[in-house]
Amino acid sequence: MMFAAGTLAVLVSMALALARALLGPTIYDRIMAVNSFGTLTVILIAVIGFLSDRPSFLDISLVYALINFITTIAIMKFFKYNRIGRRSGEDLGGL
């Protein structure tokens, strides 16, 4: 019961984050929304693992907790690179 309540809360938050990712005027809004969508997925998978009494789901959350931010870093990096890295000779100091 309590896990169901937690799941419901997380699902509502995921829907709101998805709305921000779809609306988000700047590119940073979308990145931020994806990032917190990832965090919410970590919570969701952990809670569902308890809801269905299969704690081995926690490994999946652990994977997300460990490597989800790589995506964010990569987006930031490639975004900047795409803008400045291509013009050779300009040193704008990296991300």
Partner: peptide
């Protein structure tokens, strides 16, 4: 870029 990000969300919800 935005499409790539949304595909990230797609993958997350697929995993869920």
């Amino acid at each position: 870029f935005a499409v790539v990000m949304l595909s990230g969300i797609f993958s997350l919800s697929a995993a869920a």
